[in-house]
Computed example of a mutant assay.
Amino acid sequence: MNKHYSQMTEEELHDEILMLAQHIRVAKEANNEFELPILEQKMLLVKSHLVDQSMIHPGDLYAIDEEPGSTFRIHHLKGVFAWGNRNEESEMIGLILAKLGQKLESAPQE
């Protein structure tokens, strides 16, 4: 029986990352354009379960990985997603935690 990522230990998550990396390599070599995005999304999910959520707070501002110049201000966390605003726009979106880059600004302390 397969475990949910949320039920895996850190070691099991790292093993899953290694396995997915191998599958991604094979999919790229086979030029499998249908399987590759699914595997890449799974990889983001696994990596998101390794993020220390105690270090992420509403009001924090982050760069977004692989999106130079884009920022993301956190409104709240739900599971492995941060909800907030990209580039200070009014529309609220969800962003998987693994896509958070460098913290640019911490929320003001009360």
Rank of each mutant, 00 (worst) to 15 (best):
T9P: 08
T9V: 04
E10Y: 09
E12D: 09
H14A: 10
D15F: 15
I17Y: 01
L18H: 14
L20E: 07
A21Y: 14
I24F: 03
R25N: 14
R25F: 11
V26L: 15
V26Q: 15
V26Y: 12
A27R: 04
A27T: 01
A27H: 06
K28E: 15
K28R: 15
A30H: 15
N31Q: 13
N31D: 13
N32C: 00
N32K: 08
E33S: 13
E33L: 15
E33R: 15
F34V: 14
E35L: 14
Q41L: 11
K42G: 01
M43R: 11
L44G: 10
L45D: 14
L45V: 14
K47V: 04
H49I: 00
H49Q: 06
D52A: 02
Q53E: 11
Q53K: 15
Q53A: 06
S54V: 07
M55P: 10
I56M: 04
H57P: 02
H57V: 02
H57T: 09
P58A: 02
P58Q: 04
G59T: 08
D60G: 01
D60E: 03
D60P: 02
Y62E: 00
I64D: 04
I64W: 02
D65Q: 12
D65S: 14
D65F: 04
E66A: 15
E66M: 12
E66K: 14
P68V: 03
P68E: 09
G69W: 10
S70E: 11
T71H: 05
T71P: 00
R73E: 08
R73P: 00
R73I: 01
R73H: 04
I74T: 07
I74H: 03
I74M: 04
I74E: 03
H75P: 09
H76T: 06
L77E: 04
L77R: 05
G79T: 03
G79L: 08
F81R: 11
F81M: 14
A82L: 02
A82W: 05
G84Q: 02
G84M: 05
N85E: 09
R86M: 07
R86Y: 10
E89F: 08
E89N: 09
S90R: 12
S90N: 13
E91L: 13
M92P: 04
M92W: 10
G94A: 13
L95C: 08
L95R: 07
L95K: 05
L95G: 06
I96K: 00
L97F: 09
L97R: 00
L97D: 02
A98Y: 06
K99D: 11
K99P: 05
G101W: 00
G101T: 06
Q102S: 11
K103H: 03
L104K: 08
L104G: 07
